[in-house]
Design a protein around this nucleic acid. Sequence first.
DNA 1: CAATAGCAAGTGAGCGCTTACATACTTACT
DNA 2: AGTAAGTATGTAAGCGCTCACTTGCTATTG
Lengths: 200, 200
Amino acid sequence: MKERLSAEERRRQIVEAAVELFSRKGFRGTRTREIAEAAGISEAMIFKHFATKRELYSAIIEAKSATDELLASAAIAARQHDDAGVLRAVGLKMIEQTEADPSLMRLLLFSALEGHELSDIFFESRVKTLHQFLSSYIRKRIKDKRFRAIDALVAARGFIGMVVHYLLIHELFGIKRPLHSSSEEVVELFAAIFLKGIER
Amino acid sequence: MKERLSAEERRRQIVEAAVELFSRKGFRGTRTREIAEAAGISEAMIFKHFATKRELYSAIIEAKSATDELLASAAIAARQHDDAGVLRAVGLKMIEQTEADPSLMRLLLFSALEGHELSDIFFESRVKTLHQFLSSYIRKRIKDKRFRAIDALVAARGFIGMVVHYLLIHELFGIKRPLHSSSEEVVELFAAIFLKGIER
DNA sequence: CAATAGCAAGTGAGCGCTTACATACTTACT
DNA sequence: AGTAAGTATGTAAGCGCTCACTTGCTATTG
């Protein structure tokens, strides 16, 4: 029983199976046989569509690097000079996106640790963009005299760090957030700390 | 020319070579042959001292889990209710330690991503301890009415996150800190933001 | 000599990738 | 329309290599 599919559809199918495996077990930890099995096809098919295992991996990373409208809602808040709104939007989108597709974070970490050549591109599209958006907003608000005159880039990384670390221990080590606090509340707290500090 | 060494010394020598390789290339990415070569011995010697490759890896993780006096200086500041001092001490120790031995962070991430059974122990000794120390300090200062009544654990993770993320992009993606700011200044800024926020 | 420390040379399993071949669809000619 | 030739899509089997781990042996030490 052989179902014939279009080349494009097959590729999609292979990529889909591969993403799941690469993100769970890394490049080296994933066997091409497993990918074939998960996609429900023979191993040779993978190599009909991708010259090497590495090429398949690269295709995935490049696809995942596609920068979507992650910052749309944050940009709206930015236009209205709604500081808390900007932070809230950035933080929530990060969490939302990671929870919808946890493979992204794992792929990013794996690619960096394993030293894949495309990990830089991945990093730039997925992390650097965030840093730059937030730091340029902070810089603007410093000029407006609404924020203290601090290093905007370092500060931006600080806020992103709060959220990333929260996601990291959540996704990587399975640490659950306290039952009483939703991710909205967590982001709200991070934003409040970032803007007003924890001193009373 | 065969130098005979004591079993213990050999083990140390093997472990030393293995740490470097495992942290750079992960468990699956490291060949036992490479470890032997790096240690200047034959591959068979490794298996005289460690039954399996995995056992060697576990030995390393357990050794690296040894909690040292990371929090000594922070505890001193804590006794004096020196809030900025506590944060500074925690942050600086984290950076200092990571820069002195970058393998630790990489091993921690690799073990978590690759799903090693000991990664939890590793996490608890290296991360959870920090979270608990800082969150209990924050709780105390909330009782003192010096901090606002926030979720202490989430807040603590927030501060740790700022520092961790800074180290992460530094060590993993090779992002250099801006030339004008030393790690002391970065930590100082994180502490200031955490306590007072960035609003003026 | 007994025990330990060492190595060269395997061994079998598993890996990425290839080959030889079968089956479905497309095209073109009558 | 019918069919032969050509092409794209698929598979089963396996090749060559690398890996973790073993074996069989020698050298050194107490």
